[in-house]
Write a protein that binds this DNA or RNA. Structure first.
Length: 852
RNA sequence: GCGGGCGUGGCGGAAUUGGUAGACGCACCGGACUUAAAAUCCGUAGGGGCGAAAGCCCUGUGCCGGUUCGAGUCCGGCCGCCCGCACCA
């Protein structure tokens, strides 16, 4: 019998699926829908193993749900704007080769290369819906949405302190600054005051937070991360009267400790600090010193608290004669609350540290129930307790005191209970050329004016010069010169482009009808959204996933959809890892150049030993990358898909191993042999009569496999589904004497169960089993309850909780009979050794435990 | 410091949610087929001990304790690892 020819089979079936267009291209219908989506890729040029894992998982779900009768949408596109294309264009020019290359050509060439690689995986994707975010036919609608958001005041322009990445030469959103460094470049960001475009994501702070509770099919971890990022805290805002006759707003979550205040501190970046610094050189030096401290974790941890006495005082709100010193303190952040606090050292660690250093009073005002060992001079006390030394608050507990003091300050009109959020508005403009142009116009007379909708798309010019300093779009000879839509006078186009995270904030909505003349077709978007299963990496826990949630709300409020949340279920898959190798000089070595002999690794074909390092995420810098296409060439797409699903639970990291992939290929071949070497099978559809013995056992194994695989795939437990298929394969092999319709049922079942995971192999086997319609048009099998039910069970007999014997009995055997059977066993008699049981526990169908 | 997760054979991992720990796979070993190898098929296997053998006994899910007839699973206390956030008032 011919051995399985993966290459031939893959080509054949990929063509057949594409030809059967109803299989891949769903329409809005009455059928229950299932929208399966994986995070779309950046077109870097080559797919990597991470893509293979991600898209295989999505494909399994899409194929499985389709077989179950759902109307399945499974599209693919390209997150195609971004810096690598600009860098490539510049590098090309600099090196003199292909001076004509521009980001557009580079990007579309990459897309073409990657598309064919993805297609080689046999993904059941509706390619008729494909688009790239750099297509003017896509970003035209993004510009329209931007204008709608602007009208609804979800977009605004403002001057603010922003994060400037000195390497990528652009501003960044807060979410894109990690440990004080740009998320792409790794450069330490600088603070600059610039006029920029913002999305008013903070309008939805509360909604975005609350709705997290409803996202019960999201990983807890992601929800917690978003919760922390939004950072809601309830407190009180109130004003101190300062000795210079001005007022100073502070925010606190502990107003109850106001009578323990011993100082007021303001941020080095506070406007008052700036004002005072104008006439105070020492303060200027102090501020400069504060700014030297980085924002990186380690630095913050070790940073000394520093303060500078402004000489001003603040009057205590409940005792005008009580004057608190006003200091500039490096630990007070301008970006949170009001940038000013009052310090209560007795009940706050930071304030305590600060007070100790500058010898400020430490006044206890909250006393715990159990007051022994209570000494705020030794350590601050932050727990619950009763108020003391606090006038009208004395004797109240913390919560009551908070309410009381807030009420009094509110009554006097100097305070207000407020909810403060850590979340800032999304800074979305970028000083880069390869992005979606912001459809705004600056007119000297009229100010900022939206572009006319009839002028959309505002297209990127093709002839950008990437060797200029700064933004090539700004340096373009004609792009920015236009007329004002309002007064008709000369005006200048906005030359900033949108953060590429805007592009990915609504692409899933566009997929529901990518040809719509509006941003979305309302019928389609309301039918298909939310995405029923979204799959991607955990690295987007905050960035993309939060922005997309915001954008969905914005589109809802501008009338485009009825949807609040874009992704009903989220799955974050683990990374693909590989061992790392270093040669004697310490340079990284690629796996392809390695030869393993036992535990040791050598340079291929030599006796030069190579040091084997820990398994880490595949990355170019460590050279531990294995190219998927090479592996598909050797083992076939199905074996690689199977490998990605086997063994490791999908949310955990997986170690790539060639021997593992080879094992998968062997299993694929085994299935092929089972299906093609079966002789004398009755034709498809032959009825099965009464069965017993081995035949019945095989039927039971078959139907139990159906039930188990169905459950496991529905729950995304791919590794368990794989194990169930192996178990069935072993059962079929063991029942070699069983033939006829029962064998056909078992073989057809294993092929159908493999369908979502190894689709080409499954089609080939399905055809070999005599079917004339494709497997992808075949409904998912249903388990027969009579066969999945256990007719007999193994009962464990324990004596004092230790296993002593087992026996078989019919399912549902009564307690009494089960007990009698247990005591009839020789092993039990021997183990009891004449002792009388004190107690006997019988759990029907499970165990008998005899206590002596 | 705060939050989330994890800890089971040589390895990846299962375990009906309190009921026979180690399913399934990888690697290893033994056997069959073969002139031979590959491929394939069959088989053993947590660790330790006794036995010629069938078998029997002890021990075992990071550590210590608890609840229970019974704990990988529940509770308390430790230890270790991974991830996220962090001077957030």
């Amino acid at each position: 019998m011919a051995r399985y020819n993966a290459k031939e089979s893959e080509q054949k079936w990929q063509a057949a699926w594409n030809a059967a267009d109803s299989f891949l291209t769903p329409a809005v219908s009455d059928k229950p829908k299932c929208y399966v989506l994986e995070m779309f890729p950046y077109p870097s040029g080559r797919i990597h193993m991470g893509h293979v894992r991600n898209y295989t998982m999505g494909d399994v779900i899409a194929r499985f749900r389709r077989a179950q009768g759902f109307n399945v949408l499974h599209p693919m596109g390209w997150d195609a704007f971004g810096l690598p294309a600009e860098n490539a264009a510049r590098d090309n020019k600099a090196s003199g080769k292909n001076s004509g290359t521009n980001p557009r050509e580079w990007t579309y060439a990459n897309i073409n290369a990657m598309r064919s690689e993805l297609q080689a995986l046999g993904l059941a994707i509706d390619w008729t819906r494909e688009f790239a975010t750099c297509d003017p036919s896509y970003y035209k609608h993004q510009q329209k949405l931007f204008l709608d958001f602007y009208k609804d005041e979800l977009v605004y322009r403002s001057e603010a302190d922003v994060n400037w990445d000195p390497v990528d030469l652009t501003v960044l959103a807060n979410e894109q600054v990690i440990d004080g460094r740009g998320w792409r470049s790794g450069a330490v960001v600088e603070r600059r005051k610039l006029s920029q475009w913002f999305f008013r994501i903070t309008k939805y702070s509360d909604e975005l937070l609350r709705a997290l509770d409803g996202l019960d099919k999201w990983p807890e971890k992601v929800r917690v991360m978003q919760k922390n990022w939004i950072g809601r805290s309830e407190g009180l805002r109130f004003a101190f009267d300062l000795s210079n006759m001005t007022k100073l707003d502070v925010f606190t979550t502990r107003p109850d400790t106001l009578f323990g205040a011993s100082f007021v501190a303001i941020s080095p970046d506070h406007p008052l600090t700036e004002e005072l610094a104008k006439s105070d050189e020492k303060l200027r030096d102090f501020v400069a010193q504060c700014r030297k401290t980085g924002t990186a974790e380690a630095e913050i941890e070790t940073a000394e608290k520093m303060g500078y006495d402004t000489g001003l005082t603040a009057a205590h709100p409940f005792d005008p004669d009580w004057k608190l010193p006003v200091l500039v303190a490096n630990f007070v952040l301008m970006g949170y609350g009001t940038g000013a606090i009052f310090g209560c050292p007795a009940h706050d660690q930071r304030d305590w540290d600060f007070a100790k250093k500058y010898h400020l009073p430490i006044l206890p005002v909250v006393v715990p129930e159990d007051a022994k060992d209570f000494d705020v001079q030794q350590a601050p006390y932050v727990g619950p307790g009763k108020l003391a030394n606090s006038q009208f608050l004395n004797g109240l507990d913390v919560d009551a005191a908070k309410a009381e003091i807030a009420a009094r300050l509110e009554a006097r009109g100097v305070g207000k209970r407020t909810v403060n959020y850590r979340l800032r508005d999304w800074l979305a403009s970028r000083q880069r050329a390869w992005g979606c142009p912001i459809p705004m116009i600056h007119c000297a007379k009229c100010g900022v004016v939206p572009a006319r909708e009839s002028d959309l798309p505002i297209k990127l010019p093709d002839d950008l010069d990437f060797n200029v300093k700064g933004n090539p779009l700004d340096a373009h000879p004609t792009f920015k010169f236009t007329t004002c839509p309002s007064c008709g006078g000369e005006a200048r186009r906005e030359t900033d482009t949108l953060d590429t995270f805007v592009d990915s904030s609504w692409y899933f909505a566009r997929f529901t009808d990518p040809t719509a003349s509006d941003p979305v077709n309302r019928d389609a978007v309301n039918y298909w959204l939310p995405v029923d299963q979204y799959i991607g990496g955990i690295e987007h826990a905050i960035l993309h996933l939060l922005y997309a949630r915001f954008f969905t709300r914005g589109m809802h409020d501008t009338g485009w959809t009825k949807i609040d949340e874009p992704f009903a279920a989220l799955f974050t898959q683990g990374m693909v890892c590989h061992e790392t190798y270093k040669d004697t000089s310490g340079a990284w070595v690629e796996p392809a150049q390695i030869e393993k002999r036992g535990e040791q690794a050598f340079l291929k074909g030599t006796d030069t030993e190579v040091a084997v390092g820990p398994s880490e995420k595949m990355s170019k810098s460590k050279k531990n990358v294995v190219a998927p296409m090479g592996m598909i060439d050797v083992f076939g797409a199905d074996a690689i898909r199977w490998f990605m699903l086997s063994d490791s639970p999908p949310e955990r990291d997986v170690d790539w191993s060639e021997s593992g992939a080879e094992g998968c290929w062997k299993f694929a071949s085994r299935i092929h042999r089972l299906a093609t070497e079966a002789e004398g099978l009755p034709p498809p559809g032959t009825k099965i009569g009464e069965t017993q013995g081995e035949a019945l056992a095989l039927r039971q194994a078959t139907h139990r496999a159906i039930a188990a695989v169905t459950d496991d795939l529905a729950a995304l437990r791919f590794n368990r589904a794989v194990a169930q298929v192996y178990t069935l394969a072993n059962a079929i092999a063991a029942a070699s004497a069983v033939d006829g319709a029962v064998r056909r049922e078992a073989l057809e079942t294993i092929v159908l169960l493999c369908g979502p995971m190894m689709p080409h192999l499954a089609e080939t086997c399905w055809e070999a089993l005599g079917h004339t319609t494709m497997l992808v048009d075949t409904p998912w099998p249903k388990p027969d309850a009579a066969l999945t039910a256990l007719d007999s069970v193994t009962i464990a007999v324990q004596i004092n909780g230790k296993l002593r014997a087992t026996f078989q009995t019919a399912t549902g055997t009564s307690k009494e009979e089960t007990q009698a059977k247990a005591f009839a066993l020789d092993e039990v008699t021997r183990a009891l050794d004449g002792k009388t049981p004190k107690k006997i526990i019988v759990v029907p169908n499970r165990i008998v435990n005899i206590v002596v």
